[in-house]
């Protein structure tokens, strides 16, 4: 067994993350290997250093993290209504479709209205064929001869 494999197992053993079967072989190696003993001792030393290390919590932080302050800071984000993406996409498609339909309806009405206004003063007649044709009536200006 290589020292690196042994040390990886020893490291996990220190953390209670290695099974007893796996560790037995590593412990057997440990008794006869000074490199692995050094690694094991260093790891224990490091742990005791970490446990002794006091990191004092700054008292000012509690004040800054007061619930009311946080609530005020996140007020806007907190009450934002979250709408699923698929609902938003459907709504967008429906809106586009509606705007087109509405546009055509309005344009159709306007055109029809404009045409009927025009037709009042327009003596000719539109024949809705393909393509549409305008038929001009013969204008009677008093005598047959003049008209021609």
């Amino acid at each position: 067994m290589k020292c690196d494999d042994v040390q990886e197992r020893l490291s996990a053993f220190l953390d209670n993350e290695e099974s007893t079967d796996e560790i037995e072989e590593a412990l057997g190696h440990l008794y006869g290997c000074s490199d692995c003993q050094s690694f094991f001792n260093d790891s224990i030393k490091l742990r005791s250093l970490a446990h002794k290390d006091q990191v004092d919590f700054p008292p000012g932080l509690d004040e800054a993290m007061n619930f009311r302050t946080i609530k005020a800071k996140c007020g806007i984000a907190r009450y934002r209504v979250k709408v699923p993406a698929y609902v938003l996409s459907i709504a967008a498609v429906v809106l586009i479709a509606l705007s087109f339909t509405f546009g055509f309806m309005v344009q159709g009405n306007v055109q029809r209205k404009e045409m009927s206004e025009l037709m009042k003063s327009f003596p000719g007649q539109v024949v809705y064929s393909m393509p549409p044709q305008v038929v001009y009536p013969v204008i009677d200006r008093g005598s047959k001869g003049e008209a021609r």
Partner: peptide, 11 residues
């Protein structure tokens, strides 16, 4: 694996 390497390096 990373913890083992970290301990080794820290040592």
């Amino acid at each position: 694996s990373r913890l083992f390497k970290a301990r080794k390096k820290a040592g």
